[in-house]
């Protein structure tokens, strides 16, 4: 296992930073197999699955962190544990010096498939989140927050539309607005642009960069795209393949902000980082494919 802080070159204290907003310490997740008496009788047993093993990561406030790795490496598992939707088998997740015991509005989540309520308008989807988190807030202020966030993601004029009347890119804007409207400390994004076509994707990445400059919230984003990671993040966490996925390496992205795609693509560091990530991803993906061939 590689020590994350050592990679950063800061403190030698193992896996723990005083200034960290979120600390992931020795986290392991095992999905238990079916092996109870009933399963044995019906002959539907399966083995335990070790998804991720001994992950250590410290995330400082106001940083944009991207997690990248081959598919099935447990990236979403890790993010779901930060969200409080599932729990580690061993290890701790600590947010602002408090262990994470469940989901909460201090973490806003953006889903790959948007997860908008189809029966609610754009406005209602965002208001539902605000109302749920701040039930005592005056209606006037709720309305103001909703309006503000619709403007932030550039959806003014589409307030009264239902999700099925919007394009994929617009739907994800609503998803981002909904996550930000509750004013979370950390924004969690699970492959937010994975379901979009390449052009919309690039456009939305630029939008997220613009919004991030305004809000400067801590973000943890999962992605498969190297360019996306380089454009948006301060640090890139590269994970190995599963099962028993680990953190392979954490890269610091040194480009200044605000960033522009055309500008950073000209920098020599951009190409060095990109080459390194490609090497890592190709190696891991090839290993995954080979393992699959052997399994069959």
């Amino acid at each position: 296992m590689m020590d994350v802080t050592a990679v950063n070159g800061t403190m030698p204290k193992p896996g723990y930073l005083e200034s960290a907003q979120l600390s992931i310490r020795n986290v392991t997740k095992v999905f238990p197999g079916k092996k109870g008496l009933f399963n044995r009788i019906t002959r539907q047993t399966s083995r335990d699955f070790l998804a991720i093993e001994d992950i250590n990561l410290d995330i400082e406030p106001n940083t944009f962190v991207t997690i990248i790795g081959p598919s099935g490496c447990g990236k979403s598992t890790l993010l779901n544990m930060v969200a409080g939707l599932s729990f580690p088998t061993s290890g701790d997740l600590i947010l602002n010096n408090q262990p994470i015991t469940g989901p909460g509005p201090d973490r806003g989540m953006v889903f790959q498939t948007y997860a908008l309520m189809p029966w609610m308008t754009v406005e209602d989807n965002i208001r539902f989140a605000v109302e749920t988190v701040y039930p005592r807030m005056s209606l006037q202020q709720q309305r103001r927050i909703v309006k503000e966030h619709i403007q932030l993601v550039g959806l003014s004029g589409a307030e009264k539309k239902h999700p099925h009347e919007l394009s994929g890119g617009m739907r994800q804007r609503v998803g981002i607005a909904r996550a930000l409207a509750i004013d979370p400390q950390i924004l969690l994004m699970d492959e937010p642009f994975g379901a979009l076509d390449a052009l919309t994707r690039g456009f939305l990445q630029d939008e997220v960069e613009r919004i991030w400059e305004q809000k400067r919230k801590t973000v943890i984003m999962i992605t498969h795209s190297i360019d996306e990671a380089l454009l948006l993040s301060d640090r890139i966490v590269m994970m190995t393949r599963g099962p028993a996925a680990r953190i392979d390496e954490v890269l610091d992205v040194p480009f200044g902000r605000p960033r522009q795609r055309e500008v950073i693509e000209q920098l020599p560091a951009y190409h060095e980082l990109k080459a390194e990530m490609e090497r890592h991803l190709f190696r891991e993906t090839r290993a995954v494919e080979e393992a699959r061939v052997l399994a069959k």
């Binding site: 969200a83 409080g84 939707l85 989901p103 909460g104 509005p105 973490r107 806003g108 989540m109 889903f111 498939t113 997860a115 309520m117 029966w119 539902f128 989140a129 749920t132 988190v133 509750i182």
Partner: peptide, 29 residues
Amino acid sequence: VSPEYLDVTKTLGASRFRTIFKVIIPAAL
């Protein structure tokens, strides 16, 4: 009901009552 909708209500910390009447029943409508 799509587990995603339920994940949304969980991350927002919605009460059981609110989840049933605002999300589960409209989703099953």
